[in-house]
Amino acid sequence: MKLILFIWRQQGADDPGKLVRYDTSEISAEMSFLEMLDVVNEGLVKDGKEPIAFDHDCREGICGTCSQVINGVPHGPQERTTVCQLHMRQFKDGDKIYIEPWRARAFPIVKDLIVDRSSLERVMQAGGYISVHTGCAPDANSILIRREDAETAMDAAECIGCGACVAACPNGSAMLFTAAKVTQFASLPQGQTEAKHRVCMMTEVMKHEGFGSCTNHYECQAVCPKGLKTSFIARLNREFLKALDSPEMPESFSGGFLNRGNPSR
């Protein structure tokens, strides 16, 4: 099939960037979306032009590297599917396809379709872990976990950290991402000790990194390739209310401990 692509090209962070039109032919319906871009890129390289830079790695929908907004929807038209798992049979001959990078203050553009998502790392650094020393853990079966709780934790833990939720959110909020981690650990007995600290610090850092707040548009749930639910955000809010009276609530946050020196490199 033939397609008309409009792809965001931007040389670097300071370049204004623009949409560039590419006409393709000989695209097979069996190709994945990224293989279609490979074909375009091979053509560009052979013509001595710079290929389109885009992030991708595992190409099986689990690493969360690929990040493209296709016709206004992060990860494109197919529900619960990352760009790398999207196949061209979802499109028709002659379609116009707009491909843009994730857009948010917290995700500055590196080049073309590649953005810097290290802000998500720093949200995780704020409390996305359970503090346990290597080798001092008790026997695994000494911690009993209700099956429903284990399942909730697992559902929340499925997050691949791609940032589609931020890209889709009109407020550029990372609430679903943050809430997923908070929910995972809040559902488990191991996560209770640090629960209050976690929810306070992660939300503080989220704001500090330039993410917006959640005003419940639920766009994030609609585009999440792993089907994470906004009920996790309700859970985060609940966890936050529980932390209200605690001394863990930081008076002010300066971003001191974050790995800022070398954010993405």
Binding site: R146, R147, F185
Partner: peptide, 17 residues
């Protein structure tokens, strides 16, 4: 043991094991 303590959500049966 280590992974469970870290919060890795391994599958559990109805009794929690």
């Amino acid at each position: 043991d280590q992974c469970v303590a870290q919060g890795v959500p391994f599958a559990r049966d109805y009794a929690g094991y």
